[in-house]
Design a protein around this nucleic acid. Structure first.
Lengths: 226, 226
DNA sequence: ATCTTTTTAGAGTATATACTCTAAAAAGAT
DNA sequence: ATCTTTTTAGAGTATATACTCTAAAAAGAT
C-alpha cells in the first residue's frame, strides 16, 4: 500500500477514536513512525487529508443509496439501506461528530457536504416513493415525503453524537458497541412502521426486533430534577 | 450588571456567532474592552465560563418541560413546548453545535449533560403519557414511548447543526433566520401527528402549517450523482 | 480620612500546532 | 553503473492560545 493511502487510513482511525480536533498532523506522523516532513510531502495540509477521507465516505454512501431498477422494492431493502447507512456512519464517525468545525474550516468540504446532504435527502425521498409504489408505504403528499426524509436524516446523522454524549466514559471504543449503533436502525424503523400498510407491519416489527438494544442509557439512576 | 455576568453574556454571544472553538479567552476580553487578566480574575478558566452558560441553559429547559398538574394537557401545550424548545435551542445554539468538544474537555459538563439528556427524555415521555391520558395521543407501549421520545430528541438537537451545514454562507446570522429555526417545529409535528386521534388531527395540521418554511434547502439545483 | 478589599490593566509565558526547508537516502529508469 | 526522480528524516519556525503574575486603581467600610 502506498504511503499516501496509509496516511489516510491512519488519520481516519485516529480521528474516529480521538476526534479530529485532538489529532494533530504531528500525532498522525508519530503514530505511523514517520516524520512530519514526510507527511507534508504527501499532503499539502491537514484539510486535504480530511477532504480525501470525506470523499471516500461520499463514494461509499452514494454507492448504496439507490432504488433497484430491475425489480420492485421490498421491506428487506429498507433494512439493508439502514444497515449500510449505520455501518458507514460508524466507519466514518468522526465526520458527524466534528462536522461543525470541519465545515467551517474548509470551504470546499462545506460545498461538497451541502450537495451530499441534498443528494441523500433526494435519495431517501426516492426510496419512500418506491415503497409507495410497491404498496409498502401508504401514499403521501410530496411535502410529507420531504419531511419524512429530513426527519430520518436528522435521526441518523445525530445518532453517533447522541451515543457519545450519553456515555459515562470518555473512551468511545467501549461505549459505542456495535450493538448500540444498531439500535439506530431500530429507532428509524419505529419512525417508519406507522406508515406501512397493515399487512407489512408484522414483518417489519419482527425485523425491527433484531436491532433492539436496551443497554443504551447506562444507568437507570433517578434524575435530579423532576 | 456585574462584570462576571457580562462576561457570561458576551461569551454566549460570541460562541453562538463564531463557534466555541473559534473564540479564545483573549477574544472575549478584547470584545469587552477589558484585559485578559481581568477576565481570569472572574473565571478560573474558559471551561468555567462554558459551564456557567450551560447551567443557565439547563435551568431554562428544566423550567418549561413540565406536565401541567392542575388541568388536562392540550394540543396547544404541545405547540408551546416545541416553541420554547426551539427558542432555547436558538439562544444557546453553540452548545449543540460544538457538543462533542465541550463534553470531551470537561468531565463535569459531561456528567451534567448526560443527566440533563436523560431528564429531558423522561420529560418528553411524561408529556406523551399525559397526551395519551387526555385522549390526544393513541395509547402506546412503554418501549414505543421511549423510542418516540428519543427520536424527537435526536431531531430537535440536530436541527441547528443541520441548518448550519446546509447553508452556503459561513455567516450563520443571515442563514439561520427565525423562520428556518421554526421549521423544526413543523418537522417534529410531522412526526407526532400520525399518532393523534383522528378528531385532533385537523387542528394539529392547522397549527403545524404556521411553522412551515420552504426556504431551507437554498438551491433546488440538480445534484451531481443520481 | 484611612484602611481593606475588590477589580482592573498589561506585560509576559509555556505549550501545542500546522507547516517549512534542506539534505540525504531509496527507488526506478536506461 | 550512472543519472533522475521520489521519498524520507529531522530540525526548525511562526502563530495562536490558555493562562499567570504584579502592580496600580477603584470601590467600600468605618
Amino acid at each position: 500500500m502506498k504511503t499516501k493511502d496509509k496516511i489516510v487510513l491512519t488519520s481516519l482511525e485516529l480521528f474516529n477514536t480521538n476526534g479530529e480536533r485532538n489529532v494533530s498532523t504531528n500525532h498522525i506522523a508519530a503514530h505511523m513512525g514517520m516524520s512530519p516532513g514526510n507527511l507534508y510531502y504527501h499532503f499539502r495540509n491537514k484539510s486535504d487529508i480530511i477532504y480525501e477521507i470525506f470523499k471516500n465516505y461520499e463514494l461509499l454512501v452514494d454507492s448504496y443509496l439507490h432504488v433497484p431498477s430491475d425489480r420492485p422494492i421490498h421491506i428487506h431493502d429498507l433494512i439493508s439501506y439502514l444497515d449500510a447507512v449505520f455501518n458507514g456512519l460508524w466507519a466514518y464517525r468522526f465526520i458527524h461528530r466534528d462536522l461543525e468545525h470541519l465545515l467551517s474550516s474548509d470551504e470546499r468540504l462545506r460545498d461538497d457536504y451541502r450537495h451530499f446532504t441534498l443528494r441523500c435527502l433526494e435519495g431517501i425521498q426516492r426510496i419512500i416513493l418506491a415503497m409507495e409504489k410497491s404498496a409498502i408505504y401508504r401514499p403521501m403528499a410530496e411535502q410529507q415525503r420531504k419531511s419524512k426524509a429530513l426527519n430520518t436524516w436528522l435521526i441518523v446523522t445525530n445518532w453517533m453524537t447522541y451515543l457519545k454524549s450519553i456515555h459515562v466514559s470518555e473512551n468511545a471504543e467501549e461505549a459505542l458497541s456495535r450493538k448500540s449503533i444498531q439500535h439506530g436502525v431500530y429507532l428509524v424503523l419505529d419512525y417508519v412502521i406507522p406508515y406501512l400498510y397493515e399487512d407489512k407491519r408484522e414483518l417489519a416489527l419482527e425485523l425491527q426486533e433484531k436491532y433492539r438494544f436496551d443497554g443504551i442509557a447506562p444507568k437507570p439512576e433517578l434524575s435530579k430534577a423532576s
